[in-house]
């Protein structure tokens, strides 16, 4: 995907030069290995700041809401599905957007790479299917790209954007041989007591910095329920019940909307895999309603419609 950079710059430059848009939202090179910083470009001559590689994991749909400009945005498969969700939920207008689709082969999990590397990482580069890690002490390690992808990317079945005005490259082949729900089935198989302990361990490191919530394009409420003080729904301390309530309720608010873009897990400073919560709801929506979020503009979300053949018995 590193080869996309030239095309990314070219498209951004053209769109700004011919005044198709007022700003382009993309990534610029970060100051850290395996990190890029979301940025905006308003002048054609700044387009060369833009980059594209396996470190563009932040979901750019998160940067589209509440803006007045006409915007061009680069969108991976998951980003594009969140843009569709934004449009369906009336958070952005389709005609204010130029969507530049980026067929994606997955984003690198920087913590996974760091944990599999001895010594401090100085730089990381990609060449085709390889990720090359250069160490501070002069050594280097090489990984197969597929072995160091973010958890959600390794299991992704929608790598190509579902909505776009143009593409930076040809569409990529979708993965078909993935077992998307293996981890969820494991949790479902636990008995109540074991499951409770599992969640206690999972959420124990949480410091309530809300990086998961804020990295999520779905979390756009003007005031989140955890911040609300009249009435106050939730204690603000580190009490386990409050921490759990935050995580569970946040996940439920994403039911039928989550695209498993992995932004929450990627943002977490203490490495909690809170995707296990959203994925369960994603699985339920898929199995009960054959629903996948953000796939088409003309479909109403699963929790937004009623069908007489609803599989749940209680409603009959």
């Amino acid at each position: 995907m590193i080869a996309y950079t030239d095309k990314v710059r070219q498209i951004a430059r053209r769109l700004l030069e011919d005044c198709s848009v007022e700003m382009v939202i993309g990534f610029r090179k970060g100051s850290q290995p395996m990190m890029n910083e979301p940025c905006f470009i308003k002048k054609a001559e700044d387009a060369d700041q833009l980059v594209w590689d396996g470190n563009c994991g932040i979901n750019l749909a998160n940067y589209l809401t509440g803006r007045k400009e006409k915007i061009a945005v680069f969108a991976k498969g998951c980003d594009s599905r969140n843009i569709v969700t934004h449009i369906v939920e009336n958070k952005v207008q389709r005609d204010r957007l130029v969507i530049i689709g980026v067929p994606c082969t997955g984003m690198i999990d920087k913590r996974l790479v760091a944990s599999q590397t001895e010594g401090e990482i100085e730089a990381v580069s990609e060449t085709g299917d390889k990720v090359v890690v250069k160490l501070k002490d002069g050594g280097s390690t090489e990984f197969d790209r597929r072995q160091v992808l973010q958890g959600n990317c390794a299991l992704c079945v929608h790598r190509n954007p579902v909505i776009y005005d143009e593409l930076v490259a040809d569409l990529v082949e979708e993965q078909t041989d993935v077992d998307h729900w293996a981890d969820i089935r494991e949790i479902e198989a636990m008995d109540v007591e074991k499951r409770r302990r599992f969640f206690e361990d999972l959420l124990a490191p949480c410091i309530r910095c809300y990086a998961c919530r804020n990295a999520c394009p779905l979390c756009y409420c003007p005031t989140c329920f955890v911040d609300e003080s009249r009435p106050q729904w939730l204690g603000k301390g580190q009490d386990q019940i409050d921490v759990h309530t935050f995580h569970f309720l946040r996940a439920f608010h994403c039911a039928g909307r989550c695209t498993d873009c992995g932004a929450c897990q990627r943002a977490c400073p203490v490495g909690i895999n809170m995707r296990l919560l959203t994925k369960k709801l994603e699985k339920d929506c898929f199995e009960l309603y054959q629903w996948e979020a953000g796939m088409a503009l003309d479909q109403r979300p699963a929790l937004d419609t009623y069908k007489p053949d609803d599989p749940e018995g209680f409603i009959k």
């Binding site: 109540v192 007591e193 499951r195 409770r196 569970f248 209680f314 409603i315 009959k316």
Partner: peptide, 13 residues
Amino acid sequence: MGVEPDRLHFSWI
């Protein structure tokens, strides 16, 4: 979440 299944019920009446 570890809440016993029988503790929570949904019904449409």
